[in-house]
Design a protein around this nucleic acid. Structure first.
Lengths: 200, 200
DNA sequence: CCAAATACGGAGAGCATCTCCGTTATTCAA
DNA sequence: TTGAATAACGGAGATGCTCTCCGTATTTGG
């Protein structure tokens, strides 16, 4: 049974399915960009011109939709990683730049930190992406640690959560960049090994 | 018109109203403690043995209910403030202890950081409490700044948001205290003026 | 004890997520 | 080209949440 030469059991998705998937991704990207991740799935379906059932068949929940979109952003993030690795000779500054890139990625859409945090708590469609980003953070961190630029007690996940926390807190305002800068600097002087912990 | 001698227009709330208010507060406290702030208002009403209408008449929304409960916790926080001020001669350590107390307060219930952050964004029933806490933070911070223990560019609100951010991130796990400690230490080496910013 | 004032409670409006299934579009072998 | 077989569509509706409205019940003060 099933003695087909090639294309064993998999088939291309139907045309209308491919079209709709593209429509949905596009509508979702715009919606998340304009309204933030709290926008309703129904609104996305309507914007995409499909029924709710179609939306949910393609993406079983909002996290899955976000994950699909973030994977696109993830490509950009990976480019940045490559650029940093190529350009930056100082591992401390490389880590600093990576954390900045991380912050931008986490704020790609309003409210994104919340689902990212949830993905750390319980398995979700976003979990693989998160783990990947954490792994990269770990790499940068270890390099910085080896060169004495970062505290040796930290783990990649700690840095990731710290960056996530300040991204979340920065979300209280859209226009004012000050709070984000300030918090980022606070985080930096946490990981920067410079004069830390000379102790009371 | 209205020529009454004393108790001009105000009257004690009716007995049943007082009773119900107490029931609601008690039920809410337990519910928030056991299930976190995401617990539904209906569940609280049911637990309190009152109808939804009664619940909402006493507290127009969940933030108002939280604010009423937090004001109780706020008394404890104020005690700690007094204790710290009495016991701690070093303003840097005083700030550190205050931030710890702040962290406990922010984690009084699961998920509390979220409404606290929202109260920074837009006016809510929680806003006055938040402003009060921020003002106290400002006081501790300024003392520490005067003694050179904290970076002079920071404001009380920055510290508050930093503490809130790490409280939020700590919520990914209940049991494991490590992440909270680590993040708190990162925050500390942000505000501690020690060897920060010797610069690349 | 009665009338006025106050508070109660739950049905239901409005909005969200997500499912179910009768209908429709697409594919592919004949 | 055609006509099953397959795959996908779409929207009504189940469920759960916040919050309102208003007919009913309780409390209060004279």
């Amino acid at each position: 049974m099933n003695a087909m030469p090639h294309t064993p059991t998999v088939r291309e998705p139907r045309r209308d399915a491919q079209r709709n998937r593209a429509y949905i991704l596009d509508a979702a990207r715009q919606a998340f960009l304009n309204e933030g991740v709290e926008v309703s799935m129904d609104a996305i379906a309507k914007k995409a011109g499909v029924g709710a059932g179609t939306l949910y068949r393609h993406f079983p929940n909002k996290d899955a939709l976000l994950a699909a979109l973030l994977d696109l952003h993830h490509a950009t993030l990976d480019e940045q990683r490559t650029m940093i690795e190529a350009e930056e000779r100082n591992s401390g500054q490389a880590l600093e730049r990576w954390i900045d890139a991380l912050g931008d990625w986490m704020l790609a859409y309003h409210g994104l930190p919340e689902p990212l945090r949830a993905a750390c708590k319980v398995e979700s469609a976003l979990t693989p992406t998160c783990l990947d980003v954490i792994a990269t953070t770990e790499t940068f961190l270890q390099a910085a640690q080896n060169d004495g630029f970062a505290r040796s007690t930290l783990q990649g996940r700690d840095i990731y959560l710290g960056a996530l926390a300040i991204a979340w807190a920065s979300g209280i305002t859209t226009a004012d960049q000050r709070i984000r800068t300030v918090l980022r600097d606070m985080l930096k002087d946490g990981w920067s090994a410079h004069g830390a912990n000379s102790g009371y």
